[in-house]
Design a protein around this nucleic acid. Structure first.
Length: 726
RNA sequence: GGACGGUUAGCUCAGUUGGUUAGAGCGUCUCGCUUACACCGAGAAGGCCGCAGGUUCGAAUCCUGCACCGUCCACCA
């Protein structure tokens, strides 16, 4: 060793300096690596963190695992690219920003689109900057020169082109459906964004003339257009096709009774009221019986209040209306009975927990089946592997039962859907007043179209895409697909590492979109990590106040300690627990590494230079042992068993190298036989060097700091980061 | 209603293809400032490996059933 190692390792001094050293070297960019042209690439696209806050422990997990992979493969001679990015995170960011506005006494519904957009833009840019700093602090060896944002102009353009392509391929259609509507956020949500929770509600039995219907939503009765029974139900067979008369709150009613297999004779009374505007099942039933019964009759608005033909109940919120309607029914004697303890699942908004209001709306849908089929095939053929393996089953099950995807969102923050609606009225061109109208109602295009047949204007769809529509294309968009050089060099990527909670949201969509757009799998391996929980096994969340700030503990104990604590005991697909105690334990390990290096450096004596070194049998044994240990660790990392790799090197370094090998070397080092002392020292130096290499992907900072002080004859590179793994 | 995961030392978790006294970290206890490290070292205590069957010469590990905890999926009003 050349430079003196200070008595104590001060991570706060080292980390910033070392990161700067790495970044200045340019080696985060694979193009700059001093590797032969023939070197194979290794690519990971970073899951872009949402640009609406700062990084939490979950992010620290992915940074650690991905950085281990990237550093490992870089040291093994691959042109390693880890491409960072940030996600505009449409709805999620809108929600966060709504809260911010709320605190300031403002409201997005009262703001101009452009104004709101600009404010959110500034907000996300600030967050993005903070996050970039945090990623650096965590030691992320990613290529900043290739950083992307989901709203970069070229990304937006490609996303819109994909939409147009899908539309032309008839894989996107616009249709009216009863969709999941959040009355608080006033936007549609996809099926995945619906959280079902169990609730106990009264089940009302309402008389419809000779029949009785059981329902939890009496307030929707103003939107009823028919009654339905199961055609096989003997009790009610005779009513099918009949029109029955019923007493209603606002006067007498007449309903046709239809027969439909969807009605479960076992439930309630076996008779269902059909409210096509406010229940997805009823809507579907109406579609099957279009000629017989009336369609949607809207009586609930987008704020969840009663509206239209509802008499005195107009303006009431759904919940209030429910009780009042029940009272009114009681009064006129059509409420037969009420079961008060009916347990059922209700659909709620996964963000605010409000009960969703099913509403009929025109939306853009992606036809999923053809896309899903290919995504199923590639996994069945083993072209994409999952870690843990069991995730594959979960993935396949979801894809095999996939439903069409609503990608329209009624918010401002997102990529605008490139669809244009013809103004309701045609404005005939001068001199062509009597020409037959052939105007297209909808044109899908990036630029504003003009009408061939009249002077009316096209107005762009105000909606934006579901964020996952763009992030689903992330692996190839970030690499400049289709024309970019990077997409030729680095696509398909190698590993997708992310949380199991977004297996459907993201991973499945990336596979489908990747196959559709590029005809290639976007990545070969999927590694899914679990959620980080606190020491009481609670999910960490800001609202619970149990979040450990990864940057805070990194400041206190060092990034290396945090990283190690996040690797060990963390198995694929399983949640993990992190506590300060654990981090402290690995801080101690970092100190141990430091002191071992100091000890070895202590004996870096000039007189050893000329010694005749004859390794003893023990020396030879130790060197084979570390060799074997390294091989095992290599296998573990290749198999995505980071926890085993981490444990192994930890155990070896502390309890074999420090506790045994060094202790046994002490008498030799201090003995009179200079040649033997030199031999012992050489063995220690070689083992230390190996350990630094092996430890580097896990604990990059201490190891690099020590490496920088090693004498030239020990190292082959300027940086440990690009030292050869073997 | 389906599917999946967990159940191993006080706590948090490992345990590779079934094989001799079941491992680690933290915690606890007892010693110890011996040539780096007290953010340390030496040593110790602590486990019918959820329950009940089965396969096997042999099971924490494979099979069946059950229990409890957790998660995901599902258009039953």
């Amino acid at each position: 060793m050349t430079d003196e190692l200070p008595k104590k390792y001060d991570h706060n001094v080292s980390e910033e300096k070392i990161y700067q050293l790495w970044e200045d070297s340019g080696y985060f960019n694979p193009d700059n690596l001093p590797y032969p042209k023939s070197a194979k690439p290794f690519t990971i696209i970073m899951p872009p963190p949402n640009s609406n806050g700062s990084l939490h422990m979950g992010h620290a997990v992915f940074v650690t695992l991905q950085d281990i992979l990237v550093r490992f493969w870089r040291m093994r001679g691959r042109k390693a690219l880890w491409l960072p990015g940030a996600d505009h995170a449409g709805f999620e960011t809108q929600v966060v920003f709504d809260k911010k506005l709320d605190k300031e006494g403002r409201n997005r519904f009262a703001m101009k689109r452009e104004e709101l957009w600009q404010e959110i833009w500034n907000f996300t840019q600030e967050n993005k900057k903070v996050m970039e700093g945090q990623l650096r602090k965590l030691g992320a060896s990613c290529d900043w020169s290739r950083e992307k944002f989901t709203l970069d102009p070229n990304i937006v353009e490609e996303v819109q082109k994909t939409f147009i392509q899908l539309y032309e391929d008839k894989l996107i259609y616009r249709d009216i459906r009863v969709i999941n509507w959040c009355p608080k956020h006033q936007t549609a949500l996809s099926d995945l964004e619906v959280k079902y929770v169990e609730r106990t509600d009264p089940l009302y039995y309402i008389k419809y003339g000779p029949l009785t219907v059981a329902t939890v939503r009496p307030e929707t009765k103003f939107g009823d257009t028919a009654l339905a029974v199961n055609p096989k139900d003997k009790r009610y067979k005779k009513y099918i096709g009949q029109e029955i008369e019923a007493k209603g709150i606002l006067g007498p009613l007449k309903f046709k009774v239809i027969g439909d297999d969807a009605v479960d004779p076992e439930f309630g009374t076996g008779v269902v009221k059909i409210t096509p505007a406010h229940d997805a099942n009823d809507f579907e039933m109406w579609k099957r019986h279009k000629d017989e019964i009336d369609g949607p009759k809207v009586i609930i608005d987008e704020r969840g209040k009663l509206t239209g033909d509802v008499g005195e109940f107009a303006g009431l919120k759904v919940d209030e209306a429910r009780e009042k309607v029940a009272e009114a029914m009681e009064k006129i004697g059509i409420l037969e009975k009420t079961d008060t303890d009916y347990k059922h699942q209700i659909a709620t908004c996964y963000k605010c927990g409000r009960t969703l209001e099913p509403l009929p709306r025109d939306q853009w849908f992606v036809k999923m089946e053809p896309l899903a089929k290919k995504a199923i095939d590639v996994v069945n053929q083993g072209k994409i592997k999952f870690h843990p393996d069991r995730s594959k089953k979960v993935y396949l099950h979801w894809l095999e039962n996939i439903r069409d995807w609503n990608i329209s969102r009624q918010i401002v923050w997102g990529i605008r859907i490139p669809a244009w609606f013809h103004e309701p009225k045609c404005i005939p061109k001068k001199g062509h007043e009597d020409e037959v109208k052939k105007c297209k109602e909808i044109i899908v295009s990036i630029d504003k179209p003009t009408c061939e047949f009249c002077d009316a204007e096209f107005i762009q769809d105000p909606d934006v895409f579901d964020t996952w529509f763009s992030s689903g294309q992330w692996p190839f968009l970030t690499l400049g697909y289709p024309d970019g050089k990077d997409s030729k060099d680095f696509y398909p990527t190698d590993v997708m590492e992310t949380g199991y909670d977004i297996l459907f949201f993201w991973v499945a969509r990336m596979i489908m979109m990747g196959l559709y757009c590029t005809d290639k799998i976007p990545f070969k391996d999927v590694y899914l990590h679990g959620l980080v929980r606190d020491k009481d096994r609670q999910k960490m969340s800001k609202s619970k106040g149990n979040v450990t700030d990864p940057l805070g503990v990194a400041d206190q104990y060092g990034t290396d300690a945090v990283r190690m604590a996040l690797v060990i005991g963390n198995t694929a697909g399983n949640d993990m627990v992190i506590s300060e105690d654990k981090i402290r334990g690995y801080r101690n390990f970092a100190t141990k590494i430091w002191n071992v290096a100091r000890f070895v450096a202590m004996y870096d004596k000039p007189e050893f230079k000329n010694a005749k070194i004859k390794p003893t049998d023990a020396d030879k044994k130790y060197l084979t042992e570390i060799q074997a240990t390294q091989e095992e660790i290599t296998k573990h990392i290749e198999n995505f068993e980071f926890h085993l790799a981490g444990e192994k090197i930890y155990h070896y370094f502390w309890h074999t190298f420090a506790d045994k090998i060094i202790e046994e070397a002490k008498p030799r080092l201090g003995g009179d036989d200079t040649d033997d002392a030199a031999a012992a020292h050489k063995t220690l130096r070689e083992i230390l060097f190996k350990c630094l290499v092996i430890l580097h992907p896990f604990m990059p900072y201490v190891t690099e700091e020590i490496y920088q002080t090693l004498s030239q004859d020990m190292k082959t590179q300027k940086l440990l980061m690009i030292e050869k793994w073997q």
